[in-house]
Amino acid sequence: MMYAVVVGALLVSLCLLLVRALLGPTVFDRALAGNAVGTVAMLLLAIFQFVSGRPEFVDLALVYGLLNIVGTIAVQKFFRYGDLGEPGVADEEHRL
């Protein structure tokens, strides 16, 4: 019962996030919605491992979280530098 309530709440938040991603006036709204969808997917994964009675797969939820971070950093870096191959700080000095 507890799991059902949590899953329901997560699904409702997924719906709201998708609405934000579809309507979102700026790209950053959409990026944030995408990041949050990844987080909710991670939580759903963790919850479903408990629903099916095998919580040993919770590690996978952690890997999801790591992937989510990589994706979001890629988006941010793209908007910051306009290029994903940019080395970052050292290049900043070079530009200056």
Binding site: A21, R30, A31, G34, S52
Partner: peptide, 25 residues
Amino acid sequence: LYGVVLLSGIYSFLMATVMVVLDAV
């Protein structure tokens, strides 16, 4: 197209969650 790419990422996360629900971790 930025929005499209972000939406496709969301789509993939939803698909992955469906896979989790189907127990194909």
